[in-house]
Design a protein around this nucleic acid. Structure first.
Ligand code: SF4
Ligand code: SF4
Lengths: 162, 162
DNA sequence: TTATTATGGATATTCGATATCCATAATAAA
DNA sequence: TTTATTATGGATATCGAATATCCATAATAA
């Protein structure tokens, strides 16, 4: 259970774009060289980021990418969502096993209820709660906040130099 | 990014064992039948749980598995750790890229420091923080607490029946 | 018009998750 | 002791997602 390398690449690409603030945009060549990854592969990732409205892209000479939002409004969760997709952390695979009936229909009453009981499953409730905590934290951190932390650390390091 | 089916199976196996409290232990046959998964595969999972001290196993006739701890002390995190392994949520793949130097050695000063800076990486700090939140939540939920919730829900449902 | 750049389809490769089979060891029951 | 039962671990096979590359096409600036 691990975030894919694509998430790594996407985050670093955005950090690069936010860090080297220029008027014009940044081409896939420069990004790929900076990250040490092939242009072909990174372009797929950038395409996803564009489809989700995180970056803008312009083809043609001197084209490239630029952030579509201020870096303070691009959260880690945004990036994770785009790259990792929207599949849940936990997905039940056998909702019609004996095991399920034991947990979800303990009383055996009201079999005519027939509701899909997606929200009834207690295992899923625990896992969804965990996922919520994870996502909430990721939502509180943005590209900008990381750069701020880097700058802040740099200041304290320079000040504390002997 | 999703927990594997093995985690699903492990959780349900433990829930089954904790739920059907008997003097004797439960064989792989009964467990596999209850979960709707092959005995071969489930045995691998149970083996892992045994190696980690979560269940005990006795071979031979009338053998099987039993919980090695009270279900109140078996957390979801325990199970996830055993099955999913101990790989981190985020693992940097290119710590020697230009991108890294931009973020981690902004000042360019003290290149002789040479410390492995595993704790210096700000990206990793964010991701590790997210992982901590996820794990903390999983640690607060146990096999017992889920069964308690099921029983509690059952009571309120029975009481509220028209 | 030309060179440059992003886009998306197709495809190949790798690797972990999933799954099964079997020989062996250990244990209880007969 | 003998036999049947059960867990264990090694070997192996299969599948699918992640990773990666290539290429034809569209779009844009020079
Ligand atoms: S209890 Fe929940 S996780 Fe378990 S089988 Fe039923 S729906 Fe799936
Ligand atoms: S900044 Fe952190 S995540 Fe990025 S390349 Fe350096 S070590 Fe890896």
């Amino acid at each position: 259970m691990q975030y894919s390398k694509s998430t790594d690449y996407a985050l670093h690409a955005l950090l690069h774009m936010a860090h080297t603030r220029r008027r014009d945009n940044i081409g896939i060549k420069e990004l790929a060289a900076s990250l040490g990854v092939s242009e072909s592969y990174l372009s797929k990732i950038m395409s996803k980021l564009r489809q989700d409205g995180i970056v803008r892209a312009v083809p043609g000479a001197n084209g490239g990418y630029e952030l579509a939002k201020p870096p303070g409004r691009i959260t880690f969760l945004d990036v994770v969502r785009v790259i990792e997709g929207r599949q849940r952390l936990f997905e039940c695979s056998n909702a019609n096993s004996r095991q399920h009936r034991m947990l979800a229909e303990e009383s055996g009453s009201e079999p005519a209820g027939d509701l899909p009981d997606s929200d009834e499953c207690l295992v899923k409730q625990v896992m969804d709660g965990a996922e919520r905590h994870l996502h909430q934290y990721l939502q509180e951190h943005t590209i900008q906040s990381l750069l701020d932390a880097a700058a802040s650390r740099e200041r304290s390091r320079t000040a504390g130099r002997k």
